[in-house]
Design a protein around this nucleic acid. Structure first.
Lengths: 258, 258
DNA sequence: CAGTGGTCTAGACCACGCT
DNA sequence: GCGTGGTCTAGACCACTGT
């Protein structure tokens, strides 16, 4: 036994998916059919299927069957997406909006959001990110971005209540706001000049998987984002959650000796 | 059956790991022991164990037993890791090396690598990244970086053979090279002034999971990196694979209006 | 109601590590 | 040689989906 039987079977199915014999969305043979096709016990077949599911190649549905997982087009979040936000404010009509939307050839009007604005005190982590005392009142804004009904991003953003309380920024009905956070802060006279992003990956929670419309075996990218104005943190987004099968983050690092 | 038996068993073991009853490195009961302890069939026990292994909580060793996996600290790959590489070349002793290593408080001497240097013609993707014709001869360098024996990174880097053929850079015995790629290219008179990173996430292949020592359901971060000198691509790394449970990527985006 | 994937059992043989 | 985890089999019952 050079290779376990279940891996040979998984390899065979993987090959047929890669070659297009089994296109996205196509049903696999049922387990009982595979028992005959491969001449193996059902549990052996199931182990092969489990391998492929863990890789995210297929999904299984109770009482319905196993299917090749559809592949989504990649959405690129460009390194310049924030720069465009600032430039657009001065030079371009608002409808053109940010590269966040431009990348997909759509504008903000195609976006729908779930919004949830609340006031919360800063916990330890937020206090450190925003460089304020624990307990400082914050405006917590929770968003689910959708484009043409397809969920694209979950994010939870925090702003200093001192800074935005009573302003249009704190009014949920103004969302979605063309130009995003940076444009919003600009209306308050705050010029964001630096954005820091800390990128990690993990498996989604059950809720996140449902909200983003991804399988439980599709990882997510998470970003902790801090916006700085004159070296001072003015906004923190602790858990921007992006579906890992549809997103690519694009960064450019300039090394010109300063 | 509110919850499957194997999940109850997995939960029980998970709880004992979380609470410290089973500390990192501790052996679990053997499967045959668990059959008695939990009063379940061995395959049911094995499914519980498989769940925990996939989560990266435990590791199993043939003929030795199952053990609680030690947890590794998060390694931060800073936004300035490339800048440090260039600065270090001029101002610091080579032993201090890059922030890639500095972040962990270790130096290059703690690194061991698997190296594999070959010559390959550019395929379509590489040709586009490096802006050369398809078929252009490239030097392909495959690395597995380890720090104190712990796998940290798999990468495959491509350089123009025209540029590096016959130089010390093309000699595997010179690896690991303090200061990394940028220092290497500097010795050839090439000054890298821009680095582009495209970040994605996906599930690891079985091979990658084994090489990186992560569970099969621990996602990986992948980076496609391009190094540019005077606007021209000089190096491309198509698939830098990082273990998602112990890496954070840190980027800073400057918005100073140019 | 027939067919599906999900769970579970009680066996079996194997390669491998330890002592 | 004994105990370990890895693989595999041939059954069984269940909850659920589709028609």
């Amino acid at each position: 036994m050079a290779q376990p039987r279940y891996q040979q079977i998984a390899d065979d199915i993987r090959r047929r998916i890669a070659s297009g014999v089994l296109p996205p969305g196509a049903p696999l043979s049922s387990e009982t059919e595979m028992v005959v096709e491969y001449g193996a016990a059902r549990e052996t077949i199931r182990k092969a299927i489990a391998t492929l599911r863990a890789e995210g190649l297929i999904s299984t549905a109770k009482a319905r069957g196993s299917f090749v997982r559809p592949r989504w087009p990649i959405r690129r979040l460009g390194a310049d997406r924030y720069k465009v936000e600032t430039r657009q404010r001065d030079e371009q009509p608002a409808e053109k909006a940010t590269s966040f939307t431009k990348d997909q050839g759509i504008d903000w009007s195609a976006y729908t959001m779930d919004k949830d604005f609340t006031e919360v005190p800063a916990d330890e982590r937020l206090a450190e990110l925003l460089q304020v005392a624990v307990g400082t009142p914050l405006l917590r804004r929770h968003f689910v971005f959708r484009s043409h009904g397809v969920p694209q991003q979950i994010s939870t953003s925090y702003l200093l209540l001192d800074m935005v309380g009573g302003t249009p920024v704190a009014d949920p009905t103004n969302e979605p706001w063309p130009g995003g956070n940076i444009a919003q802060l600009a209306t308050l006279g705050i010029t964001v000049d630096q954005v820091r992003e800390q990128v990690r990956t993990r498996m989604p929670t059950l809720d996140e998987a449902r909200t983003l419309g991804i399988g439980e075996s599709v990882p997510v990218l998470t970003i902790t984002r801090t916006m700085l104005a004159a070296g001072r943190p003015v906004e923190a987004a602790v858990d921007i959650v992006l579906p890992g099968d549809r997103v690519e983050l694009d960064y450019v690092i300039d090394l010109g000796s300063p």
